[in-house]
Simulated assay, not measured.
Amino acid sequence: MLLRLAGWVANTIDADILKGAATVNAMAGRIEAPLVGWVPRLSAADSTELATVALRHLDLQACPRHPLRHTSATQSLNAKEE
Score class of each variant (00 low, 15 high):
49 E>N: 08
44 A>Q: 11
50 L>S: 03
62 A>P: 10
61 Q>I: 07
60 L>M: 10
69 R>Y: 10
43 S>R: 13
56 R>W: 09
64 P>V: 00
68 L>R: 01
62 A>Q: 04
63 C>N: 06
52 T>D: 12
66 H>L: 13
69 R>W: 11
73 A>R: 00
64 P>K: 01
62 A>T: 07
54 A>K: 02
72 S>K: 00
71 T>K: 01
50 L>W: 05
73 A>Y: 00
71 T>C: 07
62 A>W: 08
64 P>N: 04
42 L>M: 06
41 R>D: 14
60 L>D: 10
46 D>W: 00
48 T>E: 03
43 S>I: 02
42 L>N: 11
57 H>P: 01
72 S>L: 06
58 L>K: 10
54 A>P: 11
73 A>D: 00
46 D>P: 02
46 D>K: 02
60 L>C: 09
71 T>G: 04
71 T>E: 06
61 Q>S: 15
57 H>C: 05
70 H>M: 05
43 S>D: 13
55 L>K: 00
47 S>K: 12
67 P>D: 05
45 A>D: 12
45 A>I: 11
66 H>P: 15
55 L>F: 13
61 Q>L: 11
58 L>R: 11
62 A>Y: 06
49 E>Y: 03
44 A>N: 07
43 S>P: 05
55 L>V: 02
50 L>K: 02
46 D>Q: 06
58 L>V: 13
69 R>D: 15
73 A>G: 01
57 H>A: 02
54 A>H: 12
47 S>P: 12
67 P>W: 08
51 A>F: 09
71 T>F: 11
42 L>K: 03
49 E>L: 03
59 D>W: 01
46 D>T: 06
44 A>W: 05
60 L>W: 10
41 R>T: 13
65 R>V: 06
41 R>K: 14
45 A>K: 13
40 P>I: 00
55 L>G: 10
46 D>H: 08
48 T>P: 01
